[in-house]
Amino acid sequence: MRERQASRNARRAREFEAFVAGAAGRLMHAATLLTAEPPDDNPRARRLLTAVLAHTYAGWDRLHGEDPYDRTRQYMAVRFARGAWHEYGGLGRAYPRIRPHPGGVLRRLTPQERLILVLRMYEGVAEEQAAALLGLPTERVRAICARAMATLLHPPREAAAPVAKVVPS
Protein backbone atom coordinates (compact mmCIF):
# COMPACT_ATOMS: atom_id res chain seq x y z
CA MET A 1 0.00 0.00 0.00
CA ARG A 2 2.78 2.43 0.92
CA GLU A 3 4.65 1.64 -2.27
CA ARG A 4 1.58 2.43 -4.35
CA GLN A 5 1.09 5.74 -2.49
CA ALA A 6 4.77 6.63 -2.97
CA SER A 7 4.55 5.75 -6.66
CA ARG A 8 1.44 7.91 -7.06
CA ASN A 9 3.10 10.83 -5.28
CA ALA A 10 6.21 10.52 -7.44
CA ARG A 11 4.12 10.45 -10.62
CA ARG A 12 2.13 13.46 -9.42
CA ALA A 13 5.34 15.37 -8.69
CA ARG A 14 6.79 14.53 -12.13
CA GLU A 15 3.60 15.62 -13.90
CA PHE A 16 3.49 18.88 -11.97
CA GLU A 17 7.19 19.56 -12.61
CA ALA A 18 6.63 19.03 -16.33
CA PHE A 19 3.66 21.41 -16.24
CA VAL A 20 5.67 24.08 -14.40
CA ALA A 21 8.61 23.67 -16.77
CA GLY A 22 6.32 24.40 -19.71
CA ALA A 23 4.00 27.01 -18.25
CA ALA A 24 5.93 28.94 -15.59
CA GLY A 25 7.47 31.47 -17.97
CA ARG A 26 4.18 32.48 -19.51
CA LEU A 27 2.43 32.53 -16.13
CA MET A 28 5.24 34.66 -14.68
CA HIS A 29 4.88 37.13 -17.52
CA ALA A 30 1.11 37.31 -16.98
CA ALA A 31 1.60 37.86 -13.24
CA THR A 32 4.14 40.61 -13.97
CA LEU A 33 1.70 42.32 -16.31
CA LEU A 34 -1.08 42.08 -13.72
CA THR A 35 1.02 43.64 -10.97
CA ALA A 36 2.40 46.32 -13.35
CA GLU A 37 5.94 45.66 -12.19
CA PRO A 38 9.05 45.70 -14.36
CA PRO A 39 10.19 42.19 -15.37
CA ASP A 40 13.50 42.45 -13.51
CA ASP A 41 11.96 43.68 -10.22
CA ASN A 42 8.64 41.92 -9.62
CA PRO A 43 8.29 40.64 -6.05
CA ARG A 44 4.47 40.90 -6.01
CA ALA A 45 4.24 38.95 -9.27
CA ARG A 46 6.52 36.26 -7.84
CA ARG A 47 4.39 35.97 -4.71
CA LEU A 48 1.25 35.75 -6.84
CA LEU A 49 2.73 33.04 -9.05
CA THR A 50 4.02 31.06 -6.07
CA ALA A 51 0.59 31.09 -4.43
CA VAL A 52 -1.13 30.14 -7.68
CA LEU A 53 1.24 27.25 -8.39
CA ALA A 54 0.90 25.99 -4.81
CA HIS A 55 -2.88 26.01 -5.23
CA THR A 56 -2.59 24.15 -8.53
CA TYR A 57 -0.31 21.53 -6.98
CA ALA A 58 -2.68 21.05 -4.05
CA GLY A 59 -5.56 20.35 -6.44
CA TRP A 60 -3.54 18.46 -9.05
CA ASP A 61 -5.30 15.14 -8.43
CA ARG A 62 -8.72 16.77 -8.79
CA LEU A 63 -8.13 18.08 -12.32
CA HIS A 64 -9.59 14.92 -13.91
CA GLY A 65 -8.58 15.70 -17.46
CA GLU A 66 -9.05 19.49 -17.23
CA ASP A 67 -6.38 21.75 -18.67
CA PRO A 68 -4.05 22.63 -15.77
CA TYR A 69 -2.94 25.85 -17.47
CA ASP A 70 -6.53 27.03 -17.82
CA ARG A 71 -7.29 26.26 -14.18
CA THR A 72 -4.09 27.95 -13.03
CA ARG A 73 -4.84 31.05 -15.12
CA GLN A 74 -8.37 31.21 -13.71
CA TYR A 75 -7.09 30.99 -10.17
CA MET A 76 -4.45 33.65 -10.90
CA ALA A 77 -7.17 36.02 -12.12
CA VAL A 78 -9.35 35.36 -9.08
CA ARG A 79 -6.43 35.65 -6.66
CA PHE A 80 -5.28 38.90 -8.27
CA ALA A 81 -8.81 40.32 -8.13
CA ARG A 82 -9.16 39.41 -4.46
CA GLY A 83 -5.72 40.78 -3.67
CA ALA A 84 -6.53 44.03 -5.43
CA TRP A 85 -9.24 44.70 -2.86
CA HIS A 86 -6.67 44.49 -0.09
CA GLU A 87 -3.70 46.03 -1.84
CA TYR A 88 -5.41 48.74 -3.90
CA GLY A 89 -8.69 49.24 -2.06
CA GLY A 90 -10.71 47.82 -4.98
CA LEU A 91 -10.38 46.69 -8.56
CA GLY A 92 -11.45 49.99 -10.07
CA ARG A 93 -9.15 52.28 -8.11
CA ALA A 94 -6.63 54.10 -10.23
CA TYR A 95 -4.14 54.91 -7.48
CA PRO A 96 -2.98 52.03 -5.32
CA ARG A 97 -1.92 52.52 -1.73
CA ILE A 98 1.39 50.95 -2.71
CA ARG A 99 2.83 52.86 -5.64
CA PRO A 100 3.60 50.64 -8.63
CA HIS A 101 7.11 50.62 -9.98
CA PRO A 102 7.64 53.40 -12.52
CA GLY A 103 8.77 50.94 -15.21
CA GLY A 104 5.62 48.79 -15.38
CA VAL A 105 4.10 48.77 -18.87
CA LEU A 106 0.50 48.74 -17.60
CA ARG A 107 1.02 51.06 -14.61
CA ARG A 108 -1.48 53.65 -15.86
CA LEU A 109 -4.34 51.13 -15.78
CA THR A 110 -6.52 50.23 -12.84
CA PRO A 111 -6.18 46.66 -11.54
CA GLN A 112 -9.48 45.73 -13.20
CA GLU A 113 -8.35 47.15 -16.55
CA ARG A 114 -5.04 45.28 -16.26
CA LEU A 115 -6.80 42.03 -15.37
CA ILE A 116 -9.21 42.21 -18.28
CA LEU A 117 -6.55 43.37 -20.73
CA VAL A 118 -4.17 40.56 -19.73
CA LEU A 119 -6.93 37.96 -19.95
CA ARG A 120 -8.19 39.20 -23.31
CA MET A 121 -5.05 40.31 -25.13
CA TYR A 122 -2.18 38.34 -23.61
CA GLU A 123 -3.98 35.12 -22.70
CA GLY A 124 -6.53 35.18 -25.54
CA VAL A 125 -9.53 34.51 -23.29
CA ALA A 126 -12.86 35.21 -24.99
CA GLU A 127 -15.00 38.09 -23.70
CA GLU A 128 -17.69 35.69 -22.56
CA GLN A 129 -15.21 33.56 -20.60
CA ALA A 130 -13.59 36.60 -18.99
CA ALA A 131 -17.00 37.98 -18.08
CA ALA A 132 -18.06 34.67 -16.51
CA LEU A 133 -14.80 34.38 -14.60
CA LEU A 134 -15.08 37.91 -13.19
CA GLY A 135 -18.85 37.93 -12.72
CA LEU A 136 -19.37 40.86 -15.08
CA PRO A 137 -21.62 41.35 -18.08
CA THR A 138 -19.90 40.74 -21.42
CA GLU A 139 -20.60 44.33 -22.50
CA ARG A 140 -18.82 45.62 -19.38
CA VAL A 141 -15.75 43.49 -20.13
CA ARG A 142 -15.76 44.82 -23.72
CA ALA A 143 -16.00 48.43 -22.52
CA ILE A 144 -13.26 48.05 -19.89
CA CYS A 145 -10.96 46.37 -22.42
CA ALA A 146 -11.58 49.14 -24.96
CA ARG A 147 -10.90 51.83 -22.36
CA ALA A 148 -7.69 50.10 -21.28
CA MET A 149 -6.51 49.81 -24.88
CA ALA A 150 -7.29 53.48 -25.49
CA THR A 151 -5.32 54.45 -22.38
CA LEU A 152 -2.33 52.43 -23.53
CA LEU A 153 -2.44 53.60 -27.13
CA HIS A 154 -3.15 57.24 -26.29
CA PRO A 155 -1.67 57.94 -22.86
CA PRO A 156 -2.65 61.16 -21.14
CA ARG A 157 -0.25 63.98 -21.77
CA GLU A 158 2.16 64.95 -19.05
CA ALA A 159 1.55 68.25 -17.33
CA ALA A 160 3.23 71.15 -19.09
CA ALA A 161 6.22 72.71 -17.38
CA PRO A 162 5.42 75.96 -15.63
CA VAL A 163 6.13 79.01 -17.71
CA ALA A 164 8.45 81.56 -16.15
CA LYS A 165 6.96 84.99 -15.69
CA VAL A 166 8.52 87.73 -17.75
CA VAL A 167 8.96 90.88 -15.80
CA PRO A 168 8.81 94.02 -17.96
CA SER A 169 11.86 96.28 -17.57
Rank of each mutant, 00 (worst) to 15 (best):
R2F: 11
R2C: 02
R2G: 13
E3R: 12
E3Y: 07
R4P: 00
R4Q: 13
A6N: 10
S7T: 15
S7W: 09
R8C: 01
A10M: 12
R11Q: 13
R12M: 05
A18I: 06
A18P: 02
A18F: 06
G22M: 02
G22P: 00
A23Y: 00
G25V: 08
R26V: 13
T32H: 03
L34F: 02
L34V: 12
T35K: 08
A36L: 06
E37M: 05
P39Y: 01
P39N: 02
D40L: 06
D41A: 13
D41Q: 13
P43Q: 05
R44F: 10
A45W: 11
R47S: 14
R47I: 07
L49N: 11
V52F: 04
L53D: 11
A54F: 02
T56I: 04
T56R: 03
A58I: 01
A58T: 12
D61T: 11
L63D: 02
L63N: 05
H64F: 02
G65V: 01
D67E: 03
D67Q: 02
R71F: 03
T72D: 06
R73Y: 03
R73N: 03
Q74C: 07
Y75I: 03
Y75P: 05
A77F: 10
A77Y: 07
V78I: 13
R79V: 00
F80L: 06
A81V: 03
A81W: 15
R82M: 06
R82Q: 14
A84H: 03
W85A: 00
E87Q: 11
Y88M: 06
G89P: 11
L91K: 02
G92T: 13
G92Q: 09
A94M: 10
P96T: 04
P96D: 04
R97I: 04
I98Q: 14
R99G: 03
R99A: 14
P100Y: 00
P100V: 01
P102N: 00
P102T: 02
P102Y: 06
G103K: 12
V105A: 13
L106V: 08
P111W: 05
Q112W: 04
R114H: 07
L115S: 09
I116T: 08
L119T: 02
R120Q: 07
M121T: 15
Y122H: 15
E123T: 01
A126T: 08
E127I: 06
Q129L: 08
Q129W: 01
Q129M: 07
A130C: 13
A131D: 04
A131L: 05
A131W: 04
A132Q: 12
L134Q: 10
G135V: 12
P137T: 02
T138Q: 15
E139H: 10
R140T: 15
R140A: 13
R142T: 14
R142Y: 11
A143V: 15
A143M: 14
I144G: 01
A146F: 07
A146N: 12
R147E: 15
R147L: 14
R147S: 15
A148V: 15
M149Y: 11
M149R: 15
L153D: 10
H154A: 13
P155Y: 06
P156D: 07
P156Y: 01
R157N: 09
E158N: 05
A159H: 09
A160N: 06
A160P: 09
A161G: 08
A161T: 07
A164K: 14
K165A: 14
V166M: 04
V167S: 08
V167T: 14
P168E: 01
S169P: 14
